[in-house]
Amino acid sequence: MRFGSKTLRLPRSATARIAVGAGLVCGGILGFLPILGFWMIPLGLLVLSQDLPSVRRWRRSMIVRMERRNGAPDRRRQGKNNRREAEKDRPEP
């Protein structure tokens, strides 16, 4: 899993990844205790999204929502605009 320039290695076994993700979420719920923190919940959900389709759909919808809110260009529309510009550059027959 990559976070910008940082890489986090996950276990190869799906069972181990689910256990790590569930442990992080459970530890995050106890975030009011020392050492544990609420930061563990989103990290655990990211790990779980590798293997659980329901969490993966939630993660993708969150990414789409964040991209729309931050004004990231829509890749599908960008392709259409490039075709329109290419049509304008073509000479008339």
Rank of each mutant, 00 (worst) to 15 (best):
M1T: 05
M1V: 08
M1W: 06
R2L: 08
R2V: 06
G4E: 11
G4F: 06
T7C: 05
T7N: 10
T7V: 14
R9C: 10
L10V: 06
L10I: 08
R12L: 15
S13N: 09
T15E: 15
T15D: 14
R17H: 12
R17F: 06
R17D: 07
I18F: 10
I18R: 15
V20D: 03
V20T: 09
G21R: 02
G21T: 05
A22V: 15
A22C: 12
G23V: 03
G23L: 08
G23F: 06
L24C: 04
L24W: 00
L24M: 03
C26R: 06
C26N: 04
C26Q: 08
C26A: 15
G27M: 02
G27L: 02
G28R: 01
I29A: 00
I29S: 00
L30I: 01
G31H: 03
G31R: 08
G31C: 05
F32H: 10
F32R: 05
L33A: 12
P34M: 12
P34I: 13
P34V: 11
L36W: 04
L36E: 00
G37R: 04
F38N: 01
F38Y: 08
F38L: 02
F38K: 04
W39H: 04
W39Y: 07
M40V: 00
M40K: 00
I41G: 00
I41Y: 01
I41W: 00
I41V: 02
P42M: 01
P42I: 01
L43W: 00
L43R: 00
G44N: 01
G44Y: 01
G44A: 00
L45C: 02
L45K: 00
L45P: 00
L46Q: 07
L46T: 04
L46F: 10
V47T: 03
V47Q: 00
V47C: 04
L48V: 07
L48F: 09
S49G: 07
S49E: 05
L52V: 15
P53Q: 05
S54N: 08
R56H: 08
R57E: 13
W58Q: 13
W58M: 14
R59V: 14
R59K: 14
R60Q: 15
S61E: 13
S61P: 08
M62K: 10
V64F: 12
V64T: 14
V64L: 15
R65E: 11
R65Q: 12
M66K: 13
M66C: 12
E67I: 01
R68L: 05
R68S: 06
R68N: 10
R69A: 13
R69H: 11
N70G: 09
N70V: 09
N70C: 07
N70P: 03
G71N: 03
A72E: 07
P73L: 02
R75N: 02
R76T: 14
R76G: 11
R76M: 15
Q78H: 04
G79C: 04
G79H: 09
G79N: 06
G79K: 12
N82F: 04
R83D: 09
R83G: 03
R83S: 06
R84K: 12
R84I: 05
E85I: 08
E85H: 13
E85A: 13
E85N: 14
A86P: 03
A86L: 11
A86V: 03
E87P: 01
K88M: 08
K88A: 11
D89P: 07
D89F: 12
R90F: 08
R90G: 06
R90V: 08
P91T: 06
E92V: 10
P93Y: 05
P93L: 04
P93V: 05
P93M: 07
